[in-house]
């Protein structure tokens, strides 16, 4: 079973320079930080979904659906406790629920999910090697760039190992069907120990294999797929910049897109 999030397609988004995509994602992150009105953020979310659609990568979104839902729900529950608004909607036994805090909570949920989805654009459309190369050409030291891309690469590997471990323990009678959440938590050890052991063994082997193929983080190396900026890259970057400037204008000069002032 392939757990990797990379979608091996050939769309114009796949063909963009990794530097464009990394910069673009950072710009999208920044845009999300400009608003805290759910409607405004929802427009950005839609935009990101469109990009994913054009990158033919909605599938990887489906893989991560639980994480996205969890992020959203979590922020819906947490934020109303910390942010107070003005308009009271409900009052239960002296506990007030404000309209603004609910809206803010929705906005934050959307914002977090949009962060993840924007990250998905990068991961679903860019080969790991290209991310490494892009980061290096943006001036990151090689060991750091390599560490980042390796971490990304290992996620599906360990997810796969994790799935096998769950199956192996279920086969010996570990009962995951019981509803009691505390009981379930105590059954964590049979999963945690093997995954740590596997992770340690695997990374050890990986580093042996890397060095045996002549790799050393300190030594110079060439790039088989050296990225270069094309016309499309500049078009994407400039349009994103224009959008970002417009958004800054809306937020700073029009003071729109905010439900709670003095907060990001």
């Amino acid at each position: 079973m392939n757990l990797s999030l990379y979608q091996d397609k050939d769309t114009w988004i796949h063909r963009l320079d990794p530097r464009t995509k990394i910069t673009g994602i950072i710009l999208i992150f920044a845009m999300c930080l400009c608003f805290n009105d759910p409607i405004y953020i929802a427009i950005l979310t839609l935009g990101v979904l469109f990009i994913l659609f054009f990158a033919r990568s909605l599938k990887s979104l489906w893989t991560l659906r639980y994480i996205l839902i969890l992020l959203f729900l979590f922020s819906m529950i947490i934020w109303p406790f910390f942010v107070k608004g003005k308009t009271v909607w409900l009052c239960i036994k002296g506990f007030y629920i404000h309209k603004e805090s609910i809206l803010y909570a929705i906005a934050m949920g959307l914002r977090l999910s949009t962060f993840v989805m924007a990250g998905m654009i990068l991961i679903s459309t860019t080969k790991n090697e290209d991310i490494t190369n892009g980061l290096i050409m943006m001036g990151l030291p090689y060991p750091i760039a390599f560490a980042i891309s390796t971490a990304l690469r290992l996620v599906p590997t360990f997810a796969g190992a994790g799935a096998t471990i769950v199956q192996a323990q279920i086969s010996r009678g570990l009962d995951l069907e019981s509803k009691n959440i505390f009981k379930r938590f105590s059954k964590f050890i049979p999963f945690a120990v093997p995954i740590f052991i596997i992770a340690i063994r695997y990374t050890n082997l990986l580093s042996m294999a890397l060095e045996s193929r002549g790799f050393s983080p300190a030594s110079p190396r060439t790039m088989y797929r050296r990225p270069y900026m094309k016309k499309n890259d500049w078009i994407v970057l400039i349009s994103l910049l224009i959008v970002f400037v417009i958004i800054l204008y809306i937020r700073i000069f029009l003071q729109a897109g905010i439900v709670i002032k003095d907060r990001l």
Partner: peptide, 12 residues
Amino acid sequence: GYVFQNPDHQIF
């Protein structure tokens, strides 16, 4: 009973 290929997937 199902015995997996790699014993390290279950030993803890």
